[in-house]
């Protein structure tokens, strides 16, 4: 590990001042991604700011029917929260499908939003990687790219976004609350992560000094009927090859509203509104689900070893819809 200095902060203002003042500074939440990457020399912060003492640990019901989740709420506490289990089961299921109980006890909501890709070449400093070292090239495009993305890719990077939680948050239309040098802002999760384009090292719209303070789930009564399906190489403690978060509003065999997000296949958590529209007003049956699945992967592109993900993503979506909405 490269040397770094360390400080503890006790309120949001202090945290923002500290990270603005230092060059190459990073906040640390659970540390489950940051410490891993520092050990490998992939992240080399000069200063680490411990934010664990901030008061961002509440899960609150909002008067508008939504829920506000503090950025330091641990993944396990969020997953087992009664409100979340009843009103947003897809989020609880997504969290519990990720990592291990120990890691979930450590990982924070803020850190999960910012976790970095698991592209094997990103992790191995011997290989060129535009995300790790801008301009060096992408080893995955013509390499062993079985785990990489089929949606939202560019000629510069085809890495998947690895988070399960973010896929559920995307289906739930979550809002990210951020406090920065110029005050507070609220960002829809679909605008939060960026496509790789020509700058895969820039992964989100946060600016220097920004602290994630909370994630807000809007009121969505039909999300009581929601579900997370994760397909992977082993049945636990493994990242997704393909995953789906769905929330469906079904009445008398007809779909009212639908929310769909795909994981494990996109360079960011992947929402497809066109596929949602194809479901809206349609009969809740396999034919409907199949046509929505075709739309969801319409623009997908395979890269030799991950061609199989196009069919896998469709099947994952159809199965998730069947489970949630009936056949």
């Amino acid at each position: 590990m490269q040397p770094f200095s360390f400080s503890r902060v006790h309120n949001n203002r202090e945290a923002i001042n500290a990270i603005t003042k230092e060059n190459d500074a990073k906040f640390i939440g659970g540390g489950t991604n940051l410490v891993d990457l520092i050990k490998l020399g992939i992240e080399n912060p000069k200063h680490i700011i411990d934010i664990n003492a901030l008061s961002l640990k509440q899960i609150e019901n909002l008067p508008n029917g939504g829920v506000r989740i503090g950025a330091l709420v641990r993944n396990s506490d969020l997953a087992y929260d009664e409100t979340i289990r009843q009103r947003y089961p897809v989020l609880s299921q997504a969290l519990l499908s990720g990592a291990s109980p120990q890691l979930r006890n450590m990982a924070t909501v803020g850190g999960n939003l910012l976790q970095r890709t698991r592209c094997p070449y990103f992790y191995d400093a011997v290989f060129p990687c535009n995300k790790r070292q801008p301009g060096s090239g992408c080893s995955a495009i013509n390499g062993y790219n079985r785990s990489n993305a089929i949606l939202g890719t560019s000629d510069h990077c085809i890495a998947t976004h690895p988070s399960d939680m973010c896929v559920a948050l995307t289906a739930l239309d979550a809002i990210i609350h951020v406090q920065g040098v110029n005050g507070e802002r609220a960002i829809n999760i679909t605008d939060f992560h960026l496509l790789p384009g020509q700058t895969p090292h820039i992964e989100n719209i946060l600016e220097k000094g920004d602290l994630i303070t909370a994630v807000e789930l809007p009121a969505m009564p039909f999300a009581q009927r929601s579900f997370y399906l994760k397909i992977r190489d082993r049945s636990s403690y493994e990242f997704a090859l393909s995953s789906v978060a769905v929330a469906l509003d079904v009445n008398g065999g007809t779909i009212g509203q639908a929310r769909i997000a795909l994981g494990g296949v996109g360079t960011k958590p992947w929402r497809n509104k066109e596929a949602e529209q194809a479901l809206t007003g349609a009969a809740a049956n396999r034919a409907t689900y199949l046509s929505a699945a075709d739309i969801a992967v319409k623009n997908a592109r395979g890269y030799k070893y991950n061609n199989f993900k196009i069919e896998l993503a469709k099947r994952t979506l159809v199965r998730a819809l069947e489970t949630t909405g009936g056949m």
Binding site: F6, R8, I28, G30, G31, T32, V35, D36, I48, D50, N52, S100, P101, Q102, L103, N105, M106
Partner: peptide
């Protein structure tokens, strides 16, 4: 709470 000690900076255990 059970956690992985290898990914915890001891300094965060004040």
């Amino acid at each position: 709470r059970r956690v992985n000690a290898c990914l915890i900076l001891a300094a965060t255990c004040e």
